[in-house]
């Protein structure tokens, strides 16, 4: 628990300082970008005033340590400061609006992929050496290495443009209004299929490969040998002896890979213009929206660390050997 808080704090601080230490003034950059893009001319004094005003609003006029303190204080209030994208809406509003979509898609896809992968991996190890194992294993090795966003590109091309089965962008049909109706839910499902598949198709195979290796090691363990000597039914051996033990490292693995999955996932969102945190980040980056960018980075780290903490806390439930250390 304590280490969680420490890491969280350290990472936030690191993020804060690394962003602040980037050369250049974010406000000025933003204003310059805007003037360039919209061909807007400003007289030099007005320019300076605008910058000053913005700076005050963003709290960038104070020295860096005061900024840091303000940052922490505001963070505790969950206030990230005004955004540029939807000025003057504060960044956290934008993020909170996008968050449910991201959590929904990412969460569901990750869990589904993990379950499929672990179950399949154990089965593959059980039928090790068979033609099915050989074939699926080779496929899995190849597929698991493809980056999520490339798979997303393939899927979009294939099933949204060439063979228009699925909609290529958005989370739901623009003609609908978010409500708890069948048509809305159906639209959400349809729109979410391709992004989810981009993740699942690759992630599941990845889990399959790693689970298979773990399960093969387990099959070589003494207690497996003993279980066979006991003449236990095969299904029991598979479920209670192999699978249960293979779960353990895979759960920890899930926690550790969340950051990696998130990395790839943001891009998938962008490719599908899915209104989640990933697309928000891309837009913010394009516009150099300081606070939103910072907000997304912090949020991602927070989410991953919290997920890790949760899994750490829940782990003793499945591995009785860990009960003592809690």
């Amino acid at each position: 628990m304590v280490s969680y808080a420490i890491v969280l704090f350290i990472s936030f601080t690191v993020v804060f300082f690394s962003l602040r230490l980037i050369p250049g003034d974010p406000v000025m950059r933003f204003v310059d970008l805007m003037t360039r893009r919209y061909s807007y001319e400003m007289a030099p004094e007005i320019y300076k005033n605008v910058i000053e005003e913005y700076k005050k609003m963003f709290g960038l006029d104070k020295d860096i340590f005061t900024q840091y303190l303000c940052f922490l204080r505001e963070l505790a209030k969950l206030n990230l400061g005004p955004s540029f994208l939807n000025f003057p809406a504060p960044a956290q509003v934008l993020i909170l609006r996008a968050l449910p979509w991201s959590i929904g898609l990412l969460g569901i896809a990750t869990v589904i992929a993990w379950i499929i992968g672990v179950v399949a991996g154990t089965l593959l190890a059980w039928f090790r050496g068979s033609k099915l194992d050989h074939f699926l294993f080779t496929v899995a090795i190849c597929m698991s290495q493809v980056p999520y966003y490339l798979m997303a590109l393939f899927l979009v091309m294939l099933f949204a443009y060439i063979i228009p089965l699925f909609p290529p962008r958005g989370a739901y049909s623009p003609t609908l209004v978010p409500e708890l109706s069948i048509s809305f839910i159906w639209s959400v499902l349809r729109h979410g299929t391709l992004p989810a598949l981009s993740l699942i198709l690759i992630s599941a195979f990845g889990w399959m490969v790693s689970t298979r290796s773990v399960a093969i090691t387990i099959v070589g363990e003494d207690y497996l040998r003993f279980a066979t000597a006991k003449g236990l039914k095969k299904r029991r051996i598979h479920n209670r002896y192999v699978f249960r033990n293979a779960l353990l490292p895979q759960v920890t693995g899930l926690a550790m890979s969340l950051g990696f999955i998130m990395n790839g996932f943001y891009l998938v969102e962008w490719i599908f213009s899915y209104p989640g945190v990933g697309t928000l980040l891309s837009l913010a980056l394009g516009l150099l929206d300081y606070n939103t960018i910072q907000g997304v980075i912090l949020l991602s780290m927070f989410a991953v660390l919290t997920a890790n903490l949760l899994i750490d806390l829940l782990y003793p439930l499945i591995d009785p050997r860990c009960l003592y250390e809690v």
Partner: peptide, 23 residues
């Protein structure tokens, strides 16, 4: 499988590792 354990039992070397750790 049917003969195993009912008629023919085995006590392996190293009982430490012969028990399923999570059950």
């Amino acid at each position: 499988r049917r003969i195993r354990w009912t008629k023919l039992a085995y006590i392996p070397q190293g009982a430490m590792n012969s028990l399923n750790p999570v059950i």
